[in-house]
Design a protein around this nucleic acid. Structure first.
Length: 801
DNA sequence: GAGCACTGC
């Protein structure tokens, strides 16, 4: 082992790694035993209280218009282990998107043989399900939810909660649709079906699809919109549930909502929990009094705040009841409920992972990681891949070069190493390499950003190296500035990273920080609602009839200043009127899958006619997905791409360059993928662009903003002035003017801002610029930049008041 | 001269 790489975590002499690995129990015999048992039991009939899956009869015999499909067979067959889904892969956004055209009528549905093969598969899976840690808790969980409407569940990784909970509940008596009288606003009564369906929300689309597929298999039903099961169990993202609530604020389709992975605390989950608290503790008038059951599930034990959160809701309700009924019997009964929001803990199924801390604080974690990687590789037996958590593409690539460099001088008798970078901006093919097993006598070393913490599971990993840091986006509302800074992770993130070493066998986690430092970390991640621009969240709430934002039950209340800033922003784009109520414009924007600002631009463009709107939709689609332009990692490639891209560049700036790119991509009918590669454009990003574009076009046609018969090949010359002026309709405050010293200063706030190097206007000097984003990394940058005239800016600012 | 991760009909 090279001298330089020795001793990061103590000398080889002092802490022989061989001993460490021997100290770890060998899981192999246990595994073998389990397998044997499984195959024996397969022949037996299940004896448990839980019935094996049957073909679920559709509840509604008459044809029912299926809800939008959530699932589609696009996910690679998940490798199953211990009855648990272990493979989550990043799919391109377009692959992830359910396409309603895909499975209008699966051919298999009429075939009896197919149903029986589905049943057979389900029966086999049932044996695995019974072994999940959660399975023995089924009755307890059912009983609790019969008694109360809210349950909290802590389920560690591998407990099986996401797949089993819906199946435990779906045949409960309270989960049947009930014919219910609902009093409408005008006083008339209507008979409607309430309930019957269970929704399970996930933070990510891939997870929703993977889980839906798995549960369909376990239940022995076909997957998708035509499956009878879709009427009962539905996996969707938090955002999709919010979108459904726009049309059905009382969630009348559902008997229960299961909120999964709440510990990740994205903005949407905070909104969902707030709305659900109002639904479970209010008078349920919109549901005709039919209760809604809510299960909130988390992988981390921090449940006290959630418990308090829902109890507070019931307490307020009881107070309200008491006030109205003056302490009647009903209110007393409700009082009991308050005391009784139970928390259910389910152990996970993980192999033990030994934690090894750095004895000294680490200054350069790339260098430290390099040493640890080789220490592991020299001392630990195969197999056992290494997963290294770093902060970003830059550190990933730096370490990649270093490891490859050192590997050249490695003892040739040692196993080979294969270094694989992993980050979201990586082209699809390169990402896929991470999932392939390493060749024989080769150790895989995956150098990853946060993407491997939650979104992607790499198999074969037994060693995790954790630098203890991550890049975090933080919105500073006062400056309207997003900063992307390297920050220490939380304890729960550190635990999550460590857990990645124990998915398949006992593992080790090397933390590139001291134990003392670990103890000073925050317990949990900062909820996103404290870190981001809230204008979209607020508009969502306003569109759902929440007039008093201050009284909305936030799981974590954002600072007043952030809320005020967001309200001001919505006022500026006329999404709210002077009284703070949502305007017609706001109603319209809330239905678009866009930030309020981009939504406003779309409406502004519509005033300039269909051609302008069509062009603006193309640009907005680019701005609302990840970066469409890739970066070459070699000079050679870069030059080739620059040449190929030249015909796409527009001197007006990035907005029109994006338009040219979308048009060229859309016009390419032969091989779009090859076109994208030639131009060093991300094919994956462009697929998402085309999806968003299609959605927006459809919505605009429905709103009569675009003619119904418009065709894709209708391409008149764009009008840059109208396009950029439309953008100023939303981005008037995202502008800067050139000052005599050659730098740019923001028109509002007079902040210095530099054009981002990725912009086509980088290094150029124009009278004024309009930008899509204002970000701080090493300095303040404007990203997504176009040249504008100061008098347009003045007009736009005056128009927005 | 530079790009944490997600999401939305």
């Amino acid at each position: 082992m090279p001298e330089r790489l020795k001793t990061y975590f103590g000398d080889a002499e002092n802490e022989p790694a061989q001993q460490v690995s021997k100290a770890v129990p060998d899981p192999a015999p246990e595994e073998a035993g389990r397998k044997k048992k499984r195959s024996k039991r397969k022949r037996d009939q299940p004896a448990d209280e839980e019935q094996p899956p049957r073909n679920h009869e559709p509840i509604h015999k008459e044809p029912v218009k299926a809800p939008s499909p959530v699932v589609e067979k696009v996910v690679p067959e998940p490798a199953e282990r211990n009855g648990e889904i272990v493979q989550q892969q990043t799919l391109s956004k377009s692959q992830q998107k359910p396409k309603s055209t895909y499975q209008s009528k699966p051919k298999t549905l009429d075939s009896k043989t197919n149903f029986s093969s589905l049943r057979e598969k389900a029966n086999n899976l049932y044996e695995q399900r019974k072994k999940l840690p959660i399975f023995g808790h089924a009755d307890e969980i059912r009983q609790k939810l019969r008694d109360q409407d809210v349950m909290l569940l802590v389920g560690e990784t591998g407990s099986g909660k996401s797949t089993q909970i819906p199946q435990f509940l779906v045949n409960e008596f309270w989960c049947r649709p009930t014919d219910t009288k609902i009093t409408k606003k005008d006083g008339s009564e209507k008979l409607v079906k309430v309930g019957g369906c269970i929704a399970i929300t996930q933070p990510r689309r891939v997870a929703a699809i993977t889980l839906a597929r798995r549960v369909a298999e376990e239940m022995g039903t076909p997957l998708g919109s035509s499956s009878p099961a879709i009427l009962r169990v539905k996996f969707l993202t938090e955002g999709m549930l919010l979108q459904e609530m726009l049309h059905d604020p009382w969630l009348t389709k559902y008997s229960a909502i299961v909120v999964d992975e709440v510990h990740e605390r994205g903005v949407n989950v905070d909104l969902v929990t707030g709305f659900l608290r109002n639904l479970v503790s209010g008078n349920k008038e919109g549901r005709g009094g039919v209760p809604l059951k809510v299960v909130v599930m988390s992988a981390t034990a921090d449940m006290e705040s959630l418990q308090g959160f829902f109890q507070e809701g019931f307490k307020l309700e009881v107070e309200e009841q008491k006030r109205i009924q003056n302490g009647s019997a009903k209110a007393e009964k409700e009082d009991e409920k308050v005391k009784d929001i139970s928390v259910c803990h389910i152990k996970g199924r993980q192999f033990p992972v030994k934690t090894i801390y750095s004895p000294e604080p680490v200054h350069d974690f790339v260098d430290a990681a390099l040493k640890v990687i080789f220490q592991i590789h020299y001392k630990e037996p195969m197999p056992g891949d290494i997963l290294v958590f770093l902060t970003g593409q830059e550190t990933v690539e730096a370490l990649e070069h270093l490891v490859n460099e050192y590997a050249i001088g490695m003892d040739p008798g040692l196993p080979k190493i294969l270094v694989l970078p992993l980050f979201a901006a990586l082209p699809q093919a390169a990402q896929q390499r991470v999932f392939m097993p390493a060749p024989p006598r080769t150790r895989k070393i995956v150098l990853s950003t946060n993407i491997a913490e939650t979104s992607v599971t790499v198999s074969g990993v037994r060693f995790v190296v954790d630098c203890g840091k991550a890049k975090v986006k933080q919105f500073r509302s006062r400056l309207g500035l997003d900063s992307l800074l390297v920050k220490p992770i939380s304890k729960s993130a550190a635990i999550q990273r460590k857990g990645r070493a124990g998915r398949e066998a006992a593992g080790q986690c090397f933390r590139l920080y001291t134990e003392k430092d670990y103890l000073t970390l925050d317990e949990t991640n900062t909820p996103e609602i404290l870190r981001c621009d809230l204008s979209q969240a607020l508009l969502n709430m306003k569109a759902r009839g929440v007039d008093d934002i201050v009284r909305f039950p936030f799981l974590t209340r954002p600072p007043r200043e952030t809320l005020e800033k967001a309200l001001l922003q919505l006022l500026n784009i006329q999404a709210l009127d002077d009284t703070g109520s949502i305007s017609k414009i706001g109603q319209h924007i809330a239905k678009l899958p866009l930030t309020p600002t981009l939504g406003r631009v779309l409406l502004a463009a519509a005033e300039h006619g269909g051609d302008c709107l069509t062009d603006v939709i193309d640009i907005i689609s680019c701005l609302s997905v990840e970066n469409i332009f890739l970066n070459a990692n070699s000079e050679e490639k870069k030059e080739a791409a620059e040449t190929a891209r030249r015909d796409l560049y527009r001197r007006e700036g990035d907005h029109l360059t994006m338009l040219a790119t979308v048009r060229a991509y859309a016009a390419e009918n032969a091989d779009r993928k090859a076109w994208a590669e030639r131009h060093l454009v991300s094919h994956r990003a462009m697929q998402s662009v085309m999806d968003v574009r299609k959605q927006l076009r459809t919505q605009c046609r429905q709103a009569k903003m675009l003619p119904a018969d418009q065709r894709n090949d209708h391409f008149p010359d764009p009008s840059p002035i109208l396009i950029l002026q439309s953008f100023l309709g939303g981005f008037a405050t995202n502008t800067a003017r050139l000052v005599p010293d050659g730098s740019y200063r923001t028109v509002v706030g007079n902040q210095t801002v530099a054009i981002h190097p990725s912009s086509v206007l980088f290094g150029k000097k124009v009278e004024a610029i309009m930008y899509n984003e204002f970000v701080f990394t090493n300095r303040t940058y404007a990203r997504g930049v176009s040249a504008v005239q100061m008098d347009w800016v003045g007009e736009a600012l005056a128009a927005s008041g």
